[in-house]
Amino acid sequence: DAQNEARFFVKIAKQFGMYDDTLMIDDAEVHSATDYQSASLAFLQEVEALGYKNTGIYSMKSFFTGGILNSHGFGSRKIWVAGYGVTSLGIDNANAWQTTDHGIMGIDTSLDFDGAFTTGATAGTVPQINVSAPQPVQHVGHPATGTYIVQPGDTLSGIAEKYGTTCQNLAAINSIGDPNHINVGQVLKVTGQPTSENTYFVQAGDTLSGIAIKFGTTVSDLVSRNHIANPNVIYVGQKLYLAGNGQSNAYTVQAGDTLSGIASKFGKTWQALAQKNGIANPNVIYVGQTIQI
């Protein structure tokens, strides 16, 4: 079921803080559909409909050259080929070429390894291997999100300087008691000013009961205030409304929900919710999605 697989894929990606500019790849290795081309394309189209516009497909050379997949049938999406010990990729529009699954790079185990990235070399040739030394990768966040995930070596003052704000402001809008103590993987708001809105962004390792104790409230209040169906399921980056903030203006999508059903529950129209939440396709919402009411 390509579309439901894509929705689950995106749900997990969002829980792990993947920004909407992340390159999302369909790993197509098991020929599990009658029309594998259409199923793979449907998966990528659904991922794109859910906000991730940068997509591609990874598969072995034999799938692309043996009629299972047509690399040109994916349009401008990235094509990533696994071709070990070959002198020809067999297609003219590959963007990345995996040369081995026994690469070694600084750790004591074998790795899938990419020999070269291409720009669509002429068919019948393999690009010259030119792998630069690995460099640390830091994702500073998509400007539209207004959030940042703390990386190794970060300090609150350094993050503040990067976003043109102050350490004190970041501490205030993120409810940080000790500005000298932030954790790798922590989700920080990097825009806005301190307000009376009593909210908390879920961090790695959090539990609802732990958050309740931290803020002097109860699990049942958090569940009710944030429309949480399962108190054992919260995700990193999720915005929780805390006691003292009045009625929550957000709803977390549950299994079986529709936009029209949510609108009816809160006395709104689905058109209003779609416009307010930037939903391009009102028929596509996913479990765990936060809808502003």
Rank of each mutant, 00 (worst) to 15 (best):
K53R: 15
L111Q: 13
Y241V: 15
K53F: 09
G141Y: 02
A250D: 14
Q193V: 13
F74G: 03
P231T: 05
T269D: 03
Y163D: 08
N130C: 08
Q3W: 01
T34N: 13
K265T: 15
G267F: 09
H102Y: 13
G73K: 10
S110A: 14
G244R: 13
N174Y: 05
T125S: 15
I57V: 12
N130D: 14
Y286R: 10
D114W: 04
L69I: 02
F64Y: 13
A49V: 09
S196C: 07
N198Y: 05
F9G: 04
L44W: 00
L111S: 05
K11Y: 08
G158N: 06
A123T: 14
K189C: 03
T217D: 09
S260I: 10
T122Q: 11
W97Y: 14
N70Y: 12
G177Y: 14
G141A: 06
V287D: 04
Q3P: 01
Q128I: 11
A160F: 04
V219F: 09
S110P: 02
L170R: 01
F266C: 05
D178Q: 13
V253Q: 04
A160N: 06
T217H: 13
W80F: 12
T258C: 06
S59V: 04
K276V: 08
A2N: 14
G256H: 10
N130K: 14
G205T: 07
K265I: 10
G115P: 02
K11H: 11
G17S: 03
Y52D: 01
I159L: 05
K265P: 02
Q45G: 01
L44K: 00
A28C: 12
V140W: 15
T125H: 13
A172G: 03
V126C: 07
I291Y: 03
C167E: 15
E197R: 15
T65M: 04
A263V: 07
G17C: 06
Q193C: 01
I182V: 10
R77C: 10
T109V: 12
E161M: 09
V81N: 00
M105G: 02
H102R: 15
L111G: 06
V202G: 01
G244T: 05
Y163C: 07
Y52C: 04
V284Q: 04
K276W: 08
N230R: 08
L69R: 00
M105H: 12
Q15N: 12
A172W: 01
V187K: 00
Q289E: 14
V202Y: 02
T119Q: 15
P134R: 07
F64C: 05
Y251S: 03
K61V: 11
T122M: 07
V223Y: 02
R7E: 13
F43P: 00
T191R: 11
P134Y: 10
A123N: 13
T165S: 11
Y84A: 11
D221Y: 14
G17A: 05
T34E: 15
E197P: 00
Y58K: 09
M60P: 00
Q203A: 06
T217Y: 10
I176W: 06
K78D: 14
H227P: 00
K61D: 08
P143G: 03
L259F: 11
G210A: 09
G278R: 09
T100E: 02
E48I: 02
F9S: 11
T125R: 07
Q45M: 07
N183C: 08
G66M: 09
C167A: 13
F201I: 15
V47F: 01
G164M: 06
N249F: 08
L273Q: 04
Y241D: 14
G237Q: 10
D154K: 00
Q254M: 08
A255R: 11
N95G: 13
D114R: 05
N93D: 15
A255M: 09
